[in-house]
Structure formats: structure tokens, C-alpha cells
Design a binder for these strands. Structure first.
Length: 414
RNA sequence: GCGGGUAUAGCUCAGUUGGUUAGAGCGCUUGGUUGUGGUCCAAGAGGUCGUCGGUUCAAAUCCGACUACUCGCCCCA
């Protein structure tokens, strides 16, 4: 067991797991398509600068979690740690500013050098959506509603809570930050070590702290809502009204803040209690300054990303493998016939298994093991009669079906 | 990056105070059944006890380091 292991924090997806994984992606894309999102596929690596500029120099992702390397030309490249930066880069490189609003869906692997835990890997997969170029709250509403639909489609409707907050526009956020820092400076002595670092790097994060001492300090801290200007307050109210009209149940969570620097206004998180410390299953927000910050035309944006592995773990009933037909030759004379019958049925759209060896008993066992719906038995008797014996493997009933009528007669086993 | 726990067959797990050839269930292979699967019965294959080192007459068992997994922190999907 020791010798040949996958790289730490990476995992193989064997057929059952792969099917669950693909099911999550497929459901997500299907629902997003109904909302009008089109898929954008970007490379899994970018110039390191792309992530440094978008995520902010102080974020943990940039300072300690990126897989960064030099290629042979001496360029610094980085395996993408998240999806938004690449989508925004593609938006700028591809001149999509001419076509706003742009509604993008993406999926695929992301890479972060972290200590693995349940629901946290070094290579993991996300699906995500972004709307670029819409200033009003209609986009926030649509994006959150889409996330809720997807989780519903996955059968997770009842198990996930939607937490919502606003960070306000740039002005409000800056004002609050100042008020908060002033307050926290006064009670510095009571803060945890982690929070003292946060005070320098990302003071809003302290609101989110799990440390008991921090929580006591935070409980008496000034509230962000009080620092909102009228425009921000109005924006937030309209987001809430829209979601209420759509019956998306939300919890206002005044201490919800997002880690990455580029967020403004709406912030949200879909969480479950079933995954331990990694309960966030889908999260995002609005990032009005990002496109401009990356060198594109000023363009507002809003979106989210969801963790495919986390969602797959929650799937109540993982998708079953498809049930095939089993073609079973009895005796060597039937081999060629079995081959051609199998081929015909496959061309007609059936999933068909034709074993490679073994007598009839063994082949029946295999048919049973792969959960075949029916066995199509071909032997000397069948060849003589010009009709296959078709056995329903659930009921055990058998009937004779003329060779040339097989395609139509097997429809109920499809 | 920090702190705790765990590591025995493909999987889930037993294994006494250190003692001879390390077990069970499931799964797998074969046979009972050379034209009929599931159930049942029987037999069989499969283990350098995570790796390396130490203590001991003797280590799966005690000690150390490493590796992986896992829980929490940080951070985040």
C-alpha cells in the first residue's frame, strides 16, 4: 500500500465516484443553461500575475496556497486556485466587453496547496457561474436563485442554508473598515493571535472568528449595516425582495464576510452541517471592481463557485450504473452470431455486454453481476429456430424472439 | 503552516499481559450445476501487519522517525 500512492491531496475517481462527480457537473450545467449561462473553458494554468492581481497580495491563497512554477521560457505560471480570475481574464482577452451582459458557466479542477481534510483536497473541482456587465441587483438575484435551483435539482434543497450579507459598495466598505479597525484597536489585548494578524491583513475576517475571546469582542463591535450609505442599503434591500419573491429562504448573516479582496455588495454562502468544518458548499458574491483592476473596461460582476466533491458527498442517492443487456452465446457455433447481434443492438441504441469467455453458467453470473436487465441467449436451438431466447433477469420469464425482430422487441429493457 | 487521532487481506474490522503457522465477514476464484444468473453448500487464492530504525531470546503488539489518512485551527468550494 505504501509504494504507489497518488500525490497528497489528490484522488482517483473510480467508476462509482466518477459517476457521482459527473452527475453533479451535469445537473449544474443543465440548470445553468436554463438560466441562459453558456460554458466557457479556460486553461487550467495562467500567468501567475492573473491571480496575484485579482486575489490581492495578502490573501492566503496567494501567499501560501498557489502551485506556481516556471516554464522553460522562464515565465511564472500558476495552476488556477479558483475560477473567477480566469473567466475575467478571458472576458478581457476575448473582447467580450462588447457583448455584455456575459453569462458564463465553468467547471473543472482547481489547485491549492493546503493541508487536506474531509472535503478539502489539493486538486478539487468546482462548477461556477458569473454574470459580467450588470449593475443592478437583478443579476445578484438570478445568480443566487440559480444556485438554489441547482442544489434543489441535486436533491439537497432541505439540507442547505443560504446565508446572505452585504459588504456595501467601495465607499461603505471602506467606511466600515475604518470604524471597525478603530474599535478593535481599542480592544487589541483581548484578541487572539490569529486575529491580531487579521487586524493588519483583513480586519473584516475577525467578524468570522471561531475564537471565544474574539467572539466576545465582536459581539459588541459596530455593525456593518450602520455604515452603509443609502445606495448600498437600497441595493441590499432589493436583492432581498427579489429572493423573497422567488421563495428562496435566506438567513441574513451580518458577520458573513468573504475572504477575497474583490468582493463588494452581496456576499452569500450555501452551507450544510453535514461536512464538518468544510460546510460551505457554494459561495460567492459581487465583485464590481475586479474587471477594471485587471486592466479591462470598468465592468460589474457577480457569481459563485461550488465544490463538486463536497456536493457529491452529500448526494442522497448516487446515480446507478446503466443496466445493459447481456448477449450470451451457448456453444462455439453461436459466437459469430452473438458478435453480430451485439453489434446490431448497440447500433440500435442499447447498452450491451458480451462476455469474453466462459460457459453459459458463468456468463449468466456475469450478467447478474453487472445488473443486466435481460439476457439474450443464442445457442444451437435458437439458431435452428431462428429466434433468440430472451430472459428477463428480474422476473425470470423467458420468451422466443425472432432474430430480425430483436431491436423492437427489447424496447422494454432499454 | 499549527495541534490531536489512526494505519492488520480488495473493503469493513478482530487479534488477550510481547510468545510458535495472523483471523472473521463481505468481495474474488473454483466446484456442486458442460443450456440458465440471484439463494444455498463446499473448497481455494489473497497479508514484507504503512515504511525505516530501535528495545528484546522473541514485536502486528513497546519506543522513535518518516509517510499517508483523519478531526480541529488557519483559510476556503
Amino acid at each position: 500500500m505504501a509504494a504507489l500512492q497518488p500525490v497528497r491531496g489528490t484522488h482517483d475517481l473510480l467508476p462509482d465516484a466518477a459517476r457521482a462527480h459527473r452527475a453533479v457537473e451535469a445537473r449544474a450545467f443543465e440548470v445553468a443553461s436554463r438560466f441562459g449561462f453558456g460554458e466557457i473553458m479556460t486553461p487550467i494554468f495562467e500567468f501567475t500575475e492573473v491571480f496575484k492581481r485579482t486575489l490581492g497580495d495578502t490573501s492566503d491563497i496567494v501567499t501560501k496556497e498557489m502551485y506556481t512554477f516556471e516554464d522553460r521560457g522562464g515565465e511564472s505560471l500558476t495552476l488556477r486556485p479558483e475560477g473567477t480570475a480566469a473567466i475575467v481574464r478571458a472576458f478581457i482577452s476575448g473582447g467580450l466587453a462588447q457583448q455584455v451582459p456575459v453569462k458564463a458557466f465553468y467547471r473543472g479542477p482547481m489547485f491549492r496547496y493546503e493541508r487536506p481534510q474531509k472535503g478539502r483536497q489539493r486538486q478539487f473541482h468546482q462548477v461556477g457561474i458569473e454574470i459580467l456587465g450588470v449593475e443592478g441587483p437583478a443579476a445578484d438575484i438570478e445568480v443566487i436563485a440559480c444556485g438554489a435551483h441547482i442544489l434543489e435539482a441535486l436533491g439537497l434543497g432541505g439540507t442547505v442554508t443560504v446565508e446572505l450579507n452585504t459588504l456595501g459598495d467601495v465607499e461603505s466598505r471602506a467606511a466600515y473598515r475604518e470604524t471597525l479597525v478603530a474599535y478593535l484597536q481599542g480592544r487589541k489585548g483581548e484578541l487572539s493571535e490569529d486575529s491580531l494578524t487579521r487586524l493588519e491583513k483583513n480586519p473584516l475576517r475577525i467578524l468570522d472568528s471561531k475564537d471565544e475571546g474574539d467572539r466576545a469582542v465582536v459581539a459588541e463591535a459596530p455593525i456593518l449595516a450602520d455604515s452603509l450609505n443609502d445606495a448600498s442599503r437600497d441595493f441590499f434591500a432589493r436583492v432581498q425582495e427579489g429572493l423573497a419573491a422567488l421563495n428562496v429562504p435566506i438567513e441574513i448573516s451580518p458577520r458573513l464576510v468573504r475572504g477575497l479582496d474583490y468582493y463588494t455588495h452581496t456576499a452569500f454562502e450555501f452551507t450544510t452541517t453535514k461536512l464538518g468544518a468544510q460546510g460551505t458548499v457554494l459561495a460567492g458574491g459581487r465583485y464590481d471592481g475586479l474587471v477594471k483592476q485587471m486592466g479591462g473596461p470598468p465592468t460589474p460582476g457577480v457569481g459563485w463557485a461550488a465544490g463538486v466533491e463536497r456536493l457529491a458527498m452529500l448526494l442522497a442517492d448516487p446515480p446507478p450504473a446503466p443496466r445493459p443487456l447481456a448477449v450470451i452465446p451457448a456453444g462455439a457455433e453461436a459466437d459469430t452470431l452473438a458478435l453480430t447481434v451485439t453489434d446490431r443492438l448497440r447500433r440500435a441504441g442499447y447498452a450491451v455486454d458480451l462476455g469474453y469467455s466462459g460457459n453459459m453458467g458463468k456468463r449468466m453470473k456475469r450478467a447478474n453481476k453487472i445488473a443486466a436487465r435481460a439476457a439474450v441467449i443464442l445457442g444451437p436451438d435458437e439458431i435452428a429456430a431462428g429466434a433468440a431466447t430472451v430472459r428477463d433477469l428480474d422476473s425470470g420469464d423467458q420468451e422466443a424472439v425472432p432474430f430480425d425482430a430483436l431491436e423492437g422487441a427489447l424496447d422494454r429493457f432499454r
